[in-house]
Design a protein around this nucleic acid. Structure first.
Length: 601
RNA sequence: UGCCCGGUAGCUCAGUGGCAGAGCAGGUGACUGUUAAUCACUUGGUCGUAGGUUCAAUCCCUACCCGGGCAGCCA
């Protein structure tokens, strides 16, 4: 077969009309010696281009064919080779088997029409199954199929095989498409013409099945699908790492590209998605505005851990000043820059304009932490509220945490049951307990007294003025109160410069309006404070922490012009997710975790 | 970063100073409306890497790498 000449659909109104019919979108059609060959969205460029020479130039550039080469040459290559190319900066892979459905059309004049059509048919995915009424079937998600209220004569499912069990006259296939935890059982009768394909199906293969949704004859599930058409889309051989047997979390972490297909991680990431949604919903319902704070920042001393440097300087040969130091003025931003550890200072700016705001985005800590609850890259939610004091802040934090738990309880019930069964038996009672009870509020000073009176021997001794250690926080929330605890009013010296000094403190017992929300099992999940709104006190705080005012001129301006009391907090998104799912390691609630020494995927 | 534990088949793990083991997965066959199906047979290994001790090291010692736990730092 050879293609004689290109024919752009838009140049011929009659052809253009045909391209818009549904039928022509599915299969090539013939009109005299002209074949209508459906192509995918990319080719819409051709379809819409008025000037054929521009189109040629576009494809010349795209495929690198030279002027004078026959159109035929590159066109045929276009249709035979899987191509990778770049359009509008996006890399696409041209799969050799295209799904023609929904495609635009380009008309070609060919000398051997049947051969051209045969070629196209071969390249396209098998045609979408037709329902009894002749319409193309739409895919049904497993989640929706399982919720069916009546049998269905025609259903189309696509997904991945979890397990196959062969019987004498048919096979059972458990299909999962990630839409929910549960899979759907597929029955493939050995008499079916497609049955030969079942032998190619192992755990992990991707398949497409159409057939009838019927009530299951066996126990264990309400619905099952009796296949009428069965297609293997992608095989998975014996090297597929996910087996039917349970895997350790550590092993699954090493195959982060496949672990979302496991029950546990599918559930974790569905809940993660819902939790993110619930966070926005909570704040939006309360009239908070969402602020995007910068990820690259020049503020390097917020007292929240070590920061990652951001630079375009040649590290092997950096520009130097006359004194021999690295000349940061020559760097991309003209100064030293870092990845942010918090959006709080910027959020304060917006709170002092829009009143109620929140941020929700990634933050970065270059701490060399090797624990189950620290990551180098994590997401944080930071509400900031104008005209709000510490009490209002604590109330908001409590309401927020309870709202999120209630939302996940209501919308992720199936996934939570799975966690309760396999991850943390106490999960559901604990979540309900948290919902029922008001959080305990306890001042730092009271907490220190409780710890001293406990009679426990501490690895780290308790003394007023020292930070509460992990063991102390755990004792308070897990043993003493057995409930989430908000500890507030911490010693001034151990907290950040921007926290509001408490009025009327005794000499040597100065505190600031800080609060930490501690929850059983995880420890600190929220840290927040009322911000110092008085210019003179803020400057004193900066002096105490040895910070240079010139680096915070804009922050100080907020106190110079129309200052207001305001407060906010930071909630670690992943820590909340750990609390809600019972998953013990932060690396297992992040799709692709970044921790010291690990940035795979 | 400190302390502790671990690294043996694709996965989960036993094991011993003297020929390397099981279950699951894979393969073959049987059986079966099955539910991580079952039964029989079977393929599969530089015992993390590099040194050292020893007649002999997967095992004992040292260093390093990787993973996990706890602590610090924090959310």
């Amino acid at each position: 077969m050879s293609v004689l000449s290109p024919f752009i659909a838009s140049r011929d109104k009659s052809v253009m009309k045909k391209t818009r019919t549904k039928k022509s979108r599915q299969t090539p059609t013939i009109s005299g010696k002209r074949a209508l060959i459906p192509v995918r969205a990319l080719d819409f460029v051709m379809y819409n281009t008025k000037d054929i020479r521009k189109t040629r130039a576009f494809y010349q550039k795209l495929f690198g064919f030279k002027r004078g080469e026959e159109w035929t040459d590159w066109w045929s290559e276009f249709h035979t080779a899987p191509l990778t190319f770049c359009l509008n900066g996006t890399a696409h892979e041209r799969h050799p088997e295209w799904d023609w459905s929904g495609a635009a059309c380009v008309a070609l004049a060919v000398d051997d029409v049947p051969a051209a059509i045969a070629k196209c048919r071969k390249r396209a995915f098998p045609p979408r199954p037709l329902a009894p009424n002749g319409k193309i079937m739409q895919r049904t998600l497993v989640k929706d199929a399982l919720n069916a209220t009546a049998p269905l004569d025609a259903i189309l499912l696509q997904g991945w095989v979890r397990t196959r069990r062969d019987a004498k006259a048919f096979s059972f296939i458990e299909l999962n498409d990630g839409s929910c935890l549960k899979g759907l059982q597929i029955i493939v009768d050995a008499a079916l013409p497609d049955y030969a394909q079942v032998a190619r199906v192992n755990t992990g293969a991707s398949i497409e099945v159409s057939g009838k949704l019927v009530e299951s004859k066996g126990g264990g599930q309400k619905w099952e699908v009796v296949a009428e058409k069965f297609t293997v889309l992608g095989e998975a051989d014996a090297t597929y790492p996910l087996q039917k047997k349970g895997h350790t979390m550590e092993f699954l972490r090493e195959i982060a590209h496949l672990r979302p297909r496991s029950n546990l991680f599918g559930a974790v990431f569905r809940v993660r998605s819902r939790l993110a949604y619930a966070i926005h919903q909570f704040f939006q319902e309360k009239g908070f505005y969402y602020v995007h704070t910068p990820i690259v920042t020049a503020s390097d001393a917020e007292g929240a851990g070590d920061m990652f440097r951001v630079t375009t300087l040649d590290l092997a040969n950096p520009p130097k000043t006359e004194q021999g130091d690295i000349d940061h003025a020559k760097d991309f931003f003209g100064k030293k820059t870092f990845l942010t550890v918090s959006g709080q200072l910027e959020a304060e700016i917006f709170a002092c304009a829009l009143s109620n705001v929140y941020t929700f985005g990634p933050t970065f800590r270059a701490e060399n932490s090797h624990t189950s609850r620290h990551a180098s890259e994590f997401w944080m939610i930071e509400p900031e509220v104008a005209f709000c004091d510490l009490n209002g802040d604590m109330e908001l934090a409590e309401e927020f945490v309870k709202y999120l738990i209630r939302d996940i309880r209501a919308h992720c019930a199936g996934d939570l049951e799975f966690f309760a069964k396999f991850v943390d038996k106490e999960l559901l009672p604990r979540l309900d307990f948290v919902l029922d009870k008001p959080f305990v509020r306890c001042s730092y000073t009271e907490a220190v007294e409780i710890l001293i009176k406990s009679g426990k021997t501490w690895e780290h001794p308790v003394a007023w003025g020292d930070n509460l250690q992990s063991e102390h926080e755990r004792y308070l929330t897990e043993e003493h109160f057995k409930c989430p605890v908000t500890v507030y009013n911490y010693p001034r010296a151990i907290k950040a410069f921007y926290m509001r000094q408490t009025d009327g403190c005794a000499e040597g017992r100065e505190t600031v309006a800080a609060m930490d929300l501690l929850v059983p099992g995880i420890g600190e999940i929220i840290g927040g404070s009322q911000r110092e709104e008085r210019l003179d006190k803020l400057r004193a705080g900066m002096a105490l922490h040895h910070l240079e005012e010139k680096n915070y001129w804009w922050y100080l301006d907020l106190r110079r012009y129309g200052t207001v009391p305001h407060a906010g907090f930071g909630l670690g998104f992943e820590r909340m997710l750990m609390f809600v799912t019972g998953v013990a390691n932060i690396r297992d609630v992040i799709p692709f975790a970044r921790t010291p020494g690990t940035a795979e995927f």
